[in-house]
Simulated assay, not measured.
Amino acid sequence: MRLSTSLSALGLVACALAHPDVTTTDANGIRSIPLRTHSLSAPYLDSDMQSRWFDFGGNTIVRADQYIRLTSDRPSQEGWLFSRVPLTATNWEIEVEFKIHGLGNLHGDGFAIWLTKQRATPGPVFGSTDRFEGLGIFFDTYKNNRPGTVFPYVMAMVGDGSKSYDKSNDGKENEFMGCSARGIRGASVPTKAKLTYFQDKSLRLELQYKSEDSWELCFETSEPPTIPSVAYLGFSAETGELSDNHDIISVSTKNLYDTKGRDSTMNKPGNKGASKGSERYSKKKEGGSWSWFFFKMLMFFMVMGGAYVGFTAWRAQKGRSHRF
């Protein structure tokens, strides 16, 4: 029994060593660092049936082994999911796997991705509050009044805290950028959205819905909007007379750094504070990496020692049973 327990613990440590949070650098010199505080994956909830980093409400249902369902395929529902802490990274990438599906031939209304000062506030804009301050990305599946536009339609809106969403015209007067995405509802492949932001440099939205590992560019701009320095990451959805299931499958958020010195905020002339901050961050990460390495090694040797003690006891017990 001791041997089994010790070897099980050893297996858990081996898994932990084999699956750390991975920091990577791509061919363009962009380093990405995972942000646990703004990422989600099954089973979504901790042992106390709460999420450490996210709040949810409205008609949201958590199916721990499959999805977070913002709305079910029923009329007049709304649900939301918001981070508990703001996303303060200067540059970031958010990749969301989602699923929009239902039984009816007619369906609606859609869901939204938010980066706003407001959080966890139900309202008429895809289940969240109107007159928001920040960025909203709307996945609109029902066409109200927008001639010449193919639906589903994905659009970005930049809110200033006073501007109201033009719901009757599907946000036509509010659109910052957008694209048609026919086939994103009920797709045969995992549907994903990847939003990449570099402050004062670029904003890009890519979608996966035609084939797996194939990204379609929805929009990209070299003049991105200013996102509030304190902005919460959120998701919301709503149904009206028509309905759909709106599921969030996973969220992966990463902090981005340009290692080749092209970061528009870290390398602006005279922006010494940002440079010093990045130096402090690098030193902290380096020290933290060594500390974590020694901690893992210590755990490894402790588990190995426990396994040896358990194995020795087992052999002694076996020897005594043989003598009888």
Rank of each mutant, 00 (worst) to 15 (best):
L70F: 08
Q317F: 08
Y67R: 15
S214F: 12
N91C: 07
S8E: 12
E133V: 03
V96M: 11
D170Y: 00
V96H: 02
W53V: 09
I68V: 15
A89Q: 15
Y142M: 13
R69A: 05
P43N: 11
Q66M: 10
K210V: 12
E279G: 05
A16W: 12
F111S: 01
W114H: 14
L203F: 13
F98V: 06
I94F: 11
S278H: 11
N144Y: 05
S72Q: 14
V125P: 01
E223M: 06
S275Y: 05
G104N: 15
S236Y: 02
A16L: 13
D244N: 13
I68G: 02
R52E: 13
P269V: 07
F293K: 14
L40G: 06
S4P: 00
I100P: 00
V150C: 02
G277N: 12
E93P: 01
A156V: 04
L45M: 10
Y281Q: 15
S252M: 10
F54E: 03
P269Y: 06
Q77N: 07
R74M: 13
A156T: 06
E93A: 12
S252P: 00
A193D: 01
S8G: 07
S162F: 06
E173D: 05
Q199L: 08
L35A: 06
G234S: 07
F98W: 08
L205R: 00
L17H: 10
L3V: 15
I137L: 11
T312C: 11
E175T: 06
L242C: 04
S128Q: 08
P269D: 07
L17T: 08
Y153G: 00
A42S: 14
S264G: 04
A307D: 07
Y257L: 12
K192Y: 03
C218Y: 04
S4Y: 11
E97P: 00
P43H: 13
M49T: 15
D258C: 04
S211D: 11
D258I: 05
P122C: 03
P122V: 04
T253R: 07
K172G: 00
A316D: 12
R323G: 02
